[in-house]
């Protein structure tokens, strides 16, 4: 009996050793094509941009100094950051209840919500941005409602930071909802039953059990929305105002209008660095969902 056990246990171990020896080469072969693609299409341009930012038109860190010291540019940085923060906050506040209902309720309401979220997820954001142009425009339903109520013409909605924030929130909301939903769906309902049986009213059970367990989803969703928002271009261009420019608009403007490749590259590097720093911080927190999973 004991001999049988060791024999069967030894078999997989030997196989594992064999695999490990061969393994040294095979994984590299498998990932080689994607590595190549990454290097050619991703790292090379980034390296080039980095290089441009300190060499064009001459070798100096002048572009970076200008980004920080010229108020016009530092304002763009701050504005981008604040706008992303606001959009992220709005997405969280709007998305949390929707994800909660999707994860916790069964029946038609869930089906309906999932359908709506999935549909807006798969509808291109250019289409959804144009939809806001129509809705908020001069001949749109908002203007019509004002007229019908005898309130005259509505306040200026389009081409303001309001409309661009609204548009970005609308576009990023499905990302937030899906990130939250993915985590909430995995929360075992018996935790909440247990909480109730232990004397927790629904509010207390939500605060001390559901909310902490959904936190990994909150972190994921916020990071996703914030990072995408930092680099948003089309929607602020179409719906926003040049006065509240976002980083990507600044880059575009520098290249399209001024052909200032060096400065544009420096701005791009700042954007990249901000994203990188965020992801690094997140990596520290990545233990979060492992901690509770």
């Amino acid at each position: 009996m004991a001999g049988g056990v060791t024999a069967t246990a030894a078999l997989p171990r030997a196989a594992a050793r064999r695999r490990a020896r061969r393994g040294a080469a095979t994984p590299w072969l498998l990932v080689a094509p994607s590595c190549l693609v990454l290097i050619v299409l991703f790292l090379t341009p980034i390296g080039y941009v980095l290089l441009l930012s300190v060499t064009d038109p001459n070798v100096s860190l002048g572009h970076y100094v200008r980004i920080v010291t010229v108020p016009l540019y530092s304002r763009v940085m701050v504005n981008t950051f604040l706008t992303s923060l606001i959009v992220t906050g709005l997405c969280l506040v709007l998305g949390f209840p929707v994800a909660y209902v999707m994860a916790r309720r069964r029946g038609w309401i869930t089906t309906l919500l999932v359908t709506i979220v999935a549909m807006s997820f798969w509808t291109g954001f250019l289409v959804r941005t144009y939809a806001w142009l129509v809705i908020l425009g001069n001949k749109g339903p908002v203007a019509a409602a004002y007229a019908a109520l005898g309130l005259g013409s509505p306040p200026r909605l389009l081409f303001t930071s309001f409309s661009s924030t609204l548009g970005m929130t609308h576009i990023l909301l499905p990302y937030m909802i899906l990130a939250l939903y993915a985590v909430m769906k995995k929360i075992d309902p018996s935790y909440l039953k247990a909480a109730a049986s232990l004397g927790a009213r629904p509010g207390a059970a939500f605060r001390s059990v559901f909310l902490p367990l959904s936190l990994p989803g909150v972190v994921n969703g916020c990071l996703l929305v914030f990072v995408v928002c930092l680099g948003f271009f089309v929607t602020p261009v179409l719906l926003g105002t040049p006065r509240d420019m976002m980083i990507s608009q600044l880059i575009n403007q520098q290249i399209e209008e001024l052909l200032a490749w060096g400065f544009a590259s420096a701005v791009a590097v700042v954007l990249l660095a901000a994203t990188g720093i965020l992801l690094t911080i997140y990596n520290r927190f990545a233990g979060l969902d492992r901690l509770w999973g």
């Binding site: 075992d188 018996s190 039953k193 109730a196 049986s197 004397g199 927790a200 009213r201």
Partner: peptide
């Protein structure tokens, strides 16, 4: 349930 003062031990334990 939270007004009943009845303890429940679930098969999955349901420990937080």
């Amino acid at each position: 349930p939270y007004e009943r003062n009845i303890g429940v031990v679930f098969q999955s334990y349901a420990l937080f």
